[in-house]
Structures are given as structure tokens and as C-alpha cells.
Design a binder for these strands. Structure first.
Lengths: 117, 117
DNA sequence: TACCGGCCTTGAGTAACTCCAGGTCAAGAA
DNA sequence: TTCTTGACCTGGAGTTACTCAAGGCCGGTA
């Protein structure tokens, strides 16, 4: 499929996909005879994963390492696994941050209510 | 207190505090006779709030609006309240994103386990 | 008095997009 | 067949939100 569809399916913008490809984050993108990118289902699955990793705060450098490992084949699965496990610890930390912020907002809003009464 | 202590207490870096002040995000910072910033407890509370708002993804433009309202006094509390309520909706969305990403990671890790067996 | 740590300002650098200008190409309408 | 449209291409500039470095001042200690 072409880039606009890959964008719609993965959640990433067209520009971001091109940028990610240039940065080496998306292996194996082929081109049609006139130079346009063509995306396989595997490409789109990969982009979707990148979308969610980014959305939850994985830095590009880590994605780059992850992509390099992915490009090297199944032998790198243990390394990739440890990257994802690290990231899932980060998710837990972010959830804590959200809770902490929720508390602070609740207190603040309560104080506002006092003023408004 | 001075800037290093304000940084330690709020969670923000010294540079970030100076940057935020320059952008109008921190009202009422006074200076000592030799030009150094002095922070009151109210300043630090405000910085701490900014820290958590940033940490959970509030864009600077919104913080700017929020700070401008804060500087205008208690009459703006309803407006500030609605900004915080909006933000707390965003927190909910982020929590959903984390859950979604967790699922995706779990599936991915499961597939990795298959390969490793 | 010489040094040191902490502060100051200004300005450059970075990360991760995001947008724009100018150009190609294939396919359908006139 | 020529014209237009729409999706794509590249290269480069612009944006956001910091982050760091250079060079300088000032108050306190050895």
C-alpha cells in the first residue's frame, strides 16, 4: 500500500513516516517503479508499534537501536525483549506520574471551589 | 530561597526555571540587591504545579495562558479551573494510551517467547 | 588578596517533528 | 492529445521546549 494508507493505519503522519525512514527506524521499505514508497503489512505493523512507543515516551535513540536489532533478524530477539521490558517499566512510572498529577489537580480544584463559594 | 533550592524542591532544572520566567510562566519572582532571584514558598508551589503539568504533557502555550490568568488574581479562578479540568481529561486519555501500549507490548513479548522456545 | 561556588545573561545547540516550495508522474476529463 | 488533478517525491526551513556553554559579577573564606 502507499504512504497515505500506511499513515492512516499506523497513526503516524505521512511526514513522520518519511522522517523515520530517513533516520533508519523503518527497515525494508520498497519503492514502486516511479520511486514511490510501498508498504507491506509487516511495515505497517512495525510503524504501528513505533507509534505507540513514541506516544508513550520512548526516545528516538532507543527506537533507533530497536530498529537496528529488528533489521538484523531473529537472533536479536533477546535484546529487543529487554528494550520492551525496560519500556514497560517506564509505562509504570508514567502511570504513577499521572496519579500524582491527578492528586495535585484534585487538591488545586478543591481550593478553587473554596474561593468560588 | 535561591534558584538552586527552588529547582530541588519543584523538580524543575535551574535552566528551565530561568527559561520559564523569561517566557512569562512564573509571576512575582523578586530579586536580591545584587540581582539574584529569590523564591517564596508560593513561587515554589507554582513551579511544582508547572512541573507536574509539563510532566503530564501540558503544552507551554496553555501554561502561558494559565500563568497569565494566575497573575491577574482570584477573579480568573473559573477560567483556571476549566484549564485544569481540560488537563485532567487529557490525563485520562494518556492513561488509556498507556493501557493500549501495555497490551501491544504484552502481545509482542509473547511472540518473542514463542521464538525463544 | 586570591580563589571559589553560585548566580547572572546571551546565544548557540538539540530532539523530534512539521511544514513548505518546487518538481515528477499517472490517470481521468475535455 | 492536451490539460488538470491528486498523490507522491526531495531538500530545506521553521517550531517547540528545553539544554548547554561562554564569559562575567559578587560575596564569603583561606
Amino acid at each position: 500500500m502507499r504512504i497515505s494508507e500506511a499513515a492512516a493505519r499506523s497513526g503516524l503522519k505521512v511526514d513522520t513516516i518519511r522522517f523515520y525512514e530517513a533516520e533508519g527506524l523503518v527497515p525494508n521499505i520498497t519503492r514502486s517503479s516511479d520511486g514511490q514508497r510501498r508498504f507491506s503489512q509487516e511495515n505497517v505493523d512495525w510503524l504501528t508499534l513505533l507509534y505507540w512507543l513514541r506516544e508513550t515516551g520512548m526516545p528516538m535513540k532507543v527506537m533507533q537501536r530497536f530498529a537496528a536489532l529488528y533489521a538484523q533478524g531473529d537472533a536479536t530477539i533477546p535484546d529487543r525483549k529487554s528494550i520492551l521490558l525496560d519500556h514497560s517499566r517506564l509505562l509504570a512510572k508514567r502511570r504513577d506520574d499521572l496519579d500524582r498529577c491527578d492528586e495535585i489537580l484534585a487538591r488545586k480544584l478543591e481550593i478553587y471551589e473554596e474561593y468560588l463559594r
